[in-house]
Design a protein around this nucleic acid. Structure first.
Lengths: 310, 310
DNA sequence: CCCGGATTCTTGACTCAGTCAGAGATATCG
DNA sequence: CGATATCTCTGACTGAGTCAAGAATCCGGG
């Protein structure tokens, strides 16, 4: 049950944050809230009091008093906002920036002490996990198409293709271990010997992690390319990644002079089929077969690259 | 810089926790601290006041007052501890358990609302990431040998072997993409056709994630087995995982009747070499070669399985 | 242009979570 | 037995954060 996981994590992390300020000296002579305000001022370019209030969810009266104190201490200056005289524009003075830097340094130290307890080999995993939590809980801001990047594979990405193909098809369609072998074979053939001008792999990346892939290789038939291993992670579907991957293959194949683009798939893969159809592929043949521990309908699809574009 | 990552995460998570109690009704008629005490009472079997104090880092006077309030409300009973009359044993009444359950339910609801903003496809990743953060920051409790489990590969694990071999050797020794091809070939050969009685793969698992692997396959020479693809993740090294994997192969090979166990490695892999030596392997041949974009010294090692054990 | 309602900030008054110090009772150690 | 430490409780206090009222200003509708 994920709710319990989250609550356990909340209790745990409340303690972590509490422990960071064990000495009660972290923010002196200010409070946690005051230092959050100072941080916000130091890091966001234009700040009216109202922005601070909404950003940090503070009570208006409370914030007003905090700003009074900051002004007395010479950390900020308050002027009327240009576009709305009710609003107060707040700007840090040089001294305010110094103080913010000092507090930041102390926080760095304290966090550094915590980090020192983590073996350095584990730190990348920690960063990664924290980033995952943040992006997933960031009020569900759905990832946008522009966040997806197509790129060449890097070391480990071919293995990722094998792993994710195997795991996903096992989970979604009950394919057995034979499928992992097939994918590994395809990947091995590609890695050991391919003409980079005529054969290529694309990785779709979202927030720094791979979420999709596709491969284009030469087919036995002359002037024919074959599209293989199209895959999009479930949690990244609906962003048009499949379309972009297929489009990349089609453009590439046409660009380097192939006349035909073919692919083999199975009728259970409905979502992929729709992608192929959108790009003009037509069903050329269909044949039942038993593979990967299941009875399947294999399909050959074909796209004529010499025809009119679009 | 990881310190900045952590601080960013702290700021972020402070807001998350704050947002959970947006209505200020979560704990009514109690406070956050009071409900933490109640939670602790409901979840740990025997609790003296002193235990609560240390567990939750509370002021003694503050806790005393909280317990007064609970007693007045009929949530707890206080008796003298048997072994030390200064200490007060605190036990929940039926009503106290009810109240704790009620608060827990409300917290569940609130967290549930948060969780509802996360697409269900992402939830396993969220749990996983939270668990990672927790285990890594849990005051550095180092994983123990007993936490490591050897098991058969599951769908995706063979791909994991390819990915991690490629990524680690690229990072640590600068191997190029050829190496990923080689590993994919080995894995593909294994997956497509292997005799489970004579050939096998082991995955080492720590806290539910794979951290190591090894493969045992038949060699061309008669009655000879070959150990391949020994790998341990950097952050899981020092737990004797390499030893256990090699031991698994040696035992298996001897058990099914092989007379020799051979392996090929390179002299740059010093840590692995020591593991092999500990298990009685002896260097049979050494030859320089150029592979994976580097000049290397390949080594053939051999272990006679028919000799005396141990 | 003016009116009503909403928004922004400020201030006074308050609550109550949490801290600190002292005292009584009891354990532990020499 | 005496000295010292520990556990709990109470009184007295601090100060972080909340609530409500009011002044200034904006905005939309007649």
């Amino acid at each position: 049950m994920t709710v319990q996981d989250i609550r356990a994590f909340n209790r745990f992390y409340t303690n972590v944050i509490g422990a960071l300020d064990y000495s009660r000296q972290l923010y002196a002579p200010y409070t946690l809230t005051e230092s959050r305000v100072l941080y916000e001022l130091a890091h966001s370019p234009r700040t009216d009091a109202a922005d601070l209030r909404t950003e940090l969810s503070l009570d208006a009266g409370y914030l007003s008093r905090i700003l009074n104190k900051f002004e007395q201490d010479g950390l900020i200056e308050r002027t009327a906002s240009a576009r709305d005289p009710r609003r107060r524009r707040v700007t840090l003075t040089a001294r305010g920036r110094e103080t913010a830097a000092l507090l930041a340094e102390r926080a760095d130290e304290s966090v550094g002490a915590l980090l020192a307890t983590v073996p350095s080999a584990d730190r990348p995993r920690l960063s990664e996990a924290m980033r995952t939590v943040r992006t997933l809980l960031s009020d569900g801001r759905p990832p946008r198409r522009e966040d997806v990047l197509l790129r060449e594979p890097r070391p480990g990405d071919l293995g990722w293709i094998v792993a994710r193909n195997a795991a996903l098809y096992a989970a979604e369609y009950g394919f057995n271990a034979d499928y992992e072998g097939l994918v590994a074979r395809i990947v091995a053939d590609f890695a050991e010997d391919h003409d980079p001008h005529l054969e290529r792999v694309w990785i779709a990346e979202l927030d720094g992690r791979p979420v999709g892939c596709v491969m284009c290789v030469r087919d036995e038939a002359p002037a024919t390319a074959r599209l293989r291993l199209l895959l999009v992670e479930p949690d990244a579907r609906g962003l048009g990644i499949g379309d972009r991957l297929v489009a990349a293959v089609v453009d590439f194949a046409r660009g380097v002079g192939y006349r035909d683009l073919v692919l083999w798939t199975n009728d259970v893969l409905a979502a992929a089929r729709r992608v192929y159809q959108r790009h003009g592929f037509v069903l050329a043949a269909e044949k039942p077969h038993r593979s990967f521990g299941r009875d399947l309908n294999g399909q050959d699809w074909r796209l004529d690259l010499t025809g009119a574009v679009g």
